[in-house]
């Protein structure tokens, strides 16, 4: 088995990287791309801290082989803010005090963003469902759920292009 070149888009930027067989996407993002916002938590798909979007689908980057990212469009927490403006979810996480130690935050925001991208006005139950694969040890979840609902309300007031 030999390393191979893999091309993908990371937060809108073209990447071509030499990837060893079996390398995990989370490690490639953090160590080769310097995208340290994505956290490597349990490393076995149990905590959601490493959630990124692959072709607009939330995935656990610790369970994705980097070789399979060929041609994919990958979005990480670094790509959530645009033009130096925080995403509504990031604003809401600050306003609702939805982060303490911060280890789960990037994964929470990426999981929530996937929800809001397909359902801009979710009910509370849908938010709970969307976050159910993400573990938080500090907040008691309520501030996170409140932040996602607040972000949805914030986005509803914005012109569609800004969302």
């Amino acid at each position: 088995m030999r390393s191979s070149f893999v091309s993908f888009t990371l937060n809108g930027e073209e990447k071509e990287l030499l990837i060893a067989p079996g390398q995990r996407l989370v490690d490639v993002l953090r160590e080769q791309c310097g995208a340290m916002g994505t956290r490597n938590g349990c490393g076995q798909g149990g905590c959601g801290a490493c959630t990124v979007h692959v072709d607009a689908v939330p995935m656990l980057s610790c369970l994705v082989l980097a070789e399979l990212a060929e041609g994919c469009d990958i979005l990480t927490i670094e790509g959530a803010a645009r033009d130096r403006t925080l995403h509504a979810l990031q604003e809401a996480f600050v306003a609702e005090a939805a982060t303490q130690c911060g280890f789960c935050t990037a994964g929470m925001i990426m999981a929530a963003k996937a929800l809001l991208d397909r359902d801009p006005a979710p009910q509370r139950e849908a938010v709970v469902e969307a976050l159910s694969g993400n573990v938080c040890r500090c907040t008691g979840y309520e501030p996170i759920i409140a932040a996602v609902l607040a972000a949805a309300a914030m986005l509803a007031r914005l012109p569609a292009a800004a969302a």
């Binding site: 349990c42 076995q44 798909g45 149990g46 905590c47 938010v127 709970v128 469902e129 976050l131 159910s132 993400n134 573990v135 040890r137 008691g140 979840y141 309520e142 996170i144 759920i145």
Partner: peptide, 17 residues
């Protein structure tokens, strides 16, 4: 054997605070 199998309440299990 690890925290992935260690049970904690998730967002669907929380009470009203």
């Amino acid at each position: 054997v690890d925290f992935a199998e260690y049970l904690m309440p998730g967002p669907a299990d929380i009470p009203q605070y």
